[in-house]
């Protein structure tokens, strides 16, 4: 079967620094893949290349067999590549509900209607509220987004991604900076999306233990290079990966291996 996302030698350099270096990977449909790697490994940059926030300097990205390297992030979202952001990126002065409502509005393709009142579309508001319930934010619906606690902003970020209802969900460290008590709630949300089985999910995460039982496969990035890609148990037993995480690995050795 044609993989839903495929990259060929995907690279980007900032000046002389290659942040992502010839990464080849394939992502089957309805698959759950996690991306791990130490800080500065290029995980988020890799995400940005797939979602279109950054343009690759080399190589190519394919979505369902079609090259999308020249499409803007808007067009990629409309094709079905939705993403959340690691650094919270919401509409700060709008209410939580309005944030999600805008995402639902985009999904419903209501873009240029200048005549009807926005509350006329009751279904959209209803859908937005349903999604807020899913991420346990329904009691904050009428709060201003900038006044939310950090964990709640992360939930809102996920809610906006869910509201877009894209085929591929790209989650960039959904639990980053969250207090430990809040993490299980987010995990539950992700698990419930996964259990519905109609989404392809790509997840960046630092907390290894959290993703091991969740992921179908894990890929490891290190210094912009793809170090390994395989099932969770393979990755756990992979000595290169262990070295990378324990800090025994340097660039020079990487080339040799």
């Amino acid at each position: 079967m044609e993989p839903i996302i495929r990259t060929e030698n995907l690279s980007i350099s900032f000046g002389g620094h290659k942040a992502v270096d010839r990464v080849n990977f394939e992502m089957p449909e309805k698959h759950f893949k996690s991306i791990i790697g130490p800080n500065g490994a290029g995980k988020t940059t890799f995400f940005n290349l797939i979602s279109g926030e950054l343009k690759n300097t080399e190589g190519d990205v394919f979505f369902k067999g079609q090259s999308i390297a020249n499409l803007s992030s808007v067009e990629r979202t409309r094709l079905g590549l939705g993403r959340s952001f690691q650094i919270t990126n919401v509409f700060p002065n709008l209410t939580v509900l309005e944030n999600v409502r805008l995402a639902v509005q985009s999904r419903e393709k209501i873009r240029f209607n200048p005549f009807k009142h926005y509350l006329h579309y009751k279904k959209i508001t209803q859908d937005a509220l349903t999604i807020l319930e899913q991420v346990l934010l329904e009691n904050k619906a009428h709060h201003i987004a900038s006044q939310l606690a950090h964990g709640e902003k992360r939930k809102l970020e996920i809610a906006m991604l869910l509201a877009l209802d894209t085929e591929v969900l790209m989650l960039d460290e959904p639990t980053a900076g969250m207090s430990l008590e809040e993490v299980p709630a987010i995990l539950d949300v992700i698990k419930s999306i996964k259990s519905r089985g109609d989404k392809t999910i790509l997840l960046i995460e630092h907390k290894m233990d959290m993703i091991l039982d969740l992921s179908d496969s894990i890929m490891v990035l290190f210094n912009g290079k793809l170090l390994a890609d395989g099932s969770p148990s393979e990755i756990m037993n992979n000595t290169t990966v262990q070295n990378a995480y324990l800090g025994g690995l340097y660039d020079g050795e990487l080339v040799e291996t």
Binding site: F91, P92, N93, L94, L102, M160
Partner: peptide, 14 residues
């Protein structure tokens, strides 16, 4: 939404 955060509006598909 554009006023609040243009880049995010784009990534919502507008």
């Amino acid at each position: 939404a554009v006023r609040e955060n243009e880049q995010r509006t784009k990534s919502l598909g507008f």
